[in-house]
Computed example of a mutant assay.
Amino acid sequence: MSGETATALAQDRVIDITTTGRRTGSPSRIEIWFHRVDGRYYITGTPGRPRDWYANLVANPAFTFHLKVSATADLSATARAVTDQGERAKVFAGLLAPLREITSRPGHAPEFWIASSPLVEVTFP
């Protein structure tokens, strides 16, 4: 991994991901935030409705993680759905700490995130 890529992973937040459609098998690219917690990488969404990107990653965990802010790189990645409630609570505690402006909104308290937000851990081969 280049120094530029490592720096982007350490400081950026906005990326694109390309997943493989669970029904169509076609690639689908979206913009999303990623988070770092205890040296690991995660992707989540706000509490509530199901997300296609999450369903795609559960069905097809291999995807492309596109850096696009401080560096440009297309990284092969693998997603693991985080479903264990204890692990989710620990991850969301770290992930939401710097996002108090979001978690103070109605319906966005940490317990809602833990209960109903999509969450995947991202690893790079």
Score class of each variant (00 low, 15 high):
52 D>L: 12
76 S>I: 13
77 A>F: 01
109 A>F: 06
38 D>A: 14
20 T>M: 08
60 N>E: 14
26 S>P: 13
42 Y>R: 11
58 V>S: 02
94 G>L: 14
82 V>S: 04
51 R>I: 10
57 L>P: 04
25 G>E: 15
62 A>G: 00
64 T>H: 07
84 D>T: 13
37 V>P: 05
23 R>L: 02
99 L>E: 09
50 P>L: 11
24 T>C: 15
25 G>D: 14
106 P>T: 12
79 A>M: 07
16 D>W: 10
103 T>N: 03
35 H>R: 12
93 A>G: 06
116 S>T: 05
33 W>T: 10
78 T>Y: 12
61 P>D: 04
56 N>M: 11
45 G>Y: 09
86 G>D: 00
25 G>H: 15
116 S>F: 02
45 G>P: 10
77 A>R: 00
79 A>Y: 00
107 G>K: 03
19 T>G: 02
71 A>S: 14
78 T>C: 07
111 E>T: 09
57 L>D: 06
101 E>C: 14
55 A>F: 03
26 S>L: 15
18 T>S: 14
95 L>K: 12
89 A>F: 02
49 R>V: 08
97 A>H: 14
115 A>R: 00
46 T>M: 13
26 S>G: 15
39 G>S: 11
82 V>G: 04
63 F>W: 08
20 T>Y: 01
36 R>Q: 08
25 G>F: 15
57 L>F: 00
107 G>R: 06
20 T>V: 13
17 I>N: 01
113 W>L: 15
118 P>E: 05
51 R>S: 04
117 S>W: 11
102 I>E: 00
64 T>S: 13
114 I>D: 01
79 A>L: 02
79 A>N: 03
52 D>Q: 08
62 A>L: 01
45 G>S: 12
74 D>N: 08
112 F>V: 03
81 A>H: 06
52 D>K: 10
45 G>V: 09
45 G>T: 14
94 G>V: 04
24 T>L: 15
49 R>G: 10
47 P>V: 00
24 T>W: 09
107 G>I: 07
39 G>C: 14
49 R>N: 10
17 I>T: 05
97 A>V: 09
54 Y>C: 02
89 A>V: 04
76 S>Y: 05
53 W>C: 10
114 I>L: 09
104 S>H: 09
95 L>T: 11
90 K>E: 02
89 A>G: 04
40 R>H: 02
110 P>C: 03
35 H>G: 11
109 A>Q: 14
69 V>D: 11
51 R>H: 13
115 A>M: 08
